[in-house]
Computed example of a mutant assay.
Amino acid sequence: MTSERTDAAKQDELAPRKPALIHVNKVTSADIKASLKAGFADFLARPFMSGFFGLFYAVFGILFVWSLVWLNKIWMIIPAVVGFPLVAPFAAAGLYEMSRRLQNGESFGWAQILTVMADQRKREMGWMAFVTLFIFWVWIYQVRLWLAIILQDASFSDFDGFLNTVFFTPEGWIFLAIGTCVGMFLCAVLFSATVVAMPLLLDREIDFVTAMITSLRVVTENPIVMLSWAAIIAVTMLVSLMPAFLGLIFTLPILGHTTWHLYQRAVPPSEE
């Protein structure tokens, strides 16, 4: 009898255990305001280093659009510009680390931040980057699909012709309506899966699936507040794109720092 109990105990120890769910807090609009204030303070604490990440992102966006023009992919310019902010959470990894160190009172320089970012390729952050880029690819593909279905007879010899077709024809209006609905759905999915997942992966040694589940739970348990935050991000990023992407030099760092502080309020510290 004792032997049977011992064997049963060993089997229980060897059986895989489901990881415990990470606790999430209720957040309010006051948390967003406080996080924005803290994020702006982080930007002012290291404006040149923070601005570097925004500048890098802006230059990449400019080169991306220029390459589309050079390749004569005129139809891709608008969806690429609209979908470009989708990869911002991954681009802000260095900003999360800066906020973490500032919050803990740790000194740091370029070497420390860039080294931490490079080390993320060895962790689960790489998988989150894959998820982000996959959603971006789906966005571009579905735009190409609806272009072929709805605007199949249209000719886009230049950017002005593309704008005229999309904004001043009945077919273009249908294309915009469908594309907007699909785009909003994809943005909602990506936002929900990544809003706290990226800083969580930087902060703790966990798998990316657990991080995504935690992020989804934060959104589903705080839908109004988190959707408000999503709207703030969307409007700020789109406005920042208008002056040739240059607004991102300031807005991306502030939003990145703010996201870290909002994550800290939404997910309590680990008890380990």
Rank of each mutant, 00 (worst) to 15 (best):
C187W: 13
P170G: 01
A193G: 06
R217L: 11
V219Y: 12
A197K: 10
V195I: 14
F191I: 09
V239I: 10
F191S: 04
L190K: 07
S240V: 03
I232M: 12
L238K: 09
S240F: 08
P223G: 04
V166D: 00
D207A: 11
M184C: 15
I232P: 07
P223L: 08
V196A: 05
P199E: 04
L227M: 15
T210N: 10
T169E: 05
T194I: 11
P223D: 01
V189R: 01
W173Q: 12
P223H: 03
I232E: 04
P170V: 02
V182P: 04
S215I: 06
S240E: 03
F185T: 14
V218H: 07
V196Q: 04
D203Y: 09
T169C: 10
G179D: 07
V166H: 02
G179N: 14
D203S: 15
M198T: 04
D207C: 11
T236G: 09
F175T: 01
L200P: 00
W173R: 08
C187I: 07
F191D: 02
I233C: 13
M237H: 11
L186A: 10
T220L: 15
I224C: 01
I233T: 02
P170K: 04
I213A: 12
C181L: 15
V218K: 05
V235W: 09
V195S: 07
C181V: 15
L238G: 03
A197T: 05
T236C: 10
E221A: 13
L202D: 06
G183R: 12
S228P: 00
I233W: 15
V195M: 06
A234F: 14
V209M: 04
L241W: 08
L216E: 04
A177Y: 03
P170H: 07
A177I: 09
R217T: 09
T236D: 05
V218I: 05
F168I: 03
T180P: 04
S192F: 06
P170M: 03
M226T: 09
D207R: 14
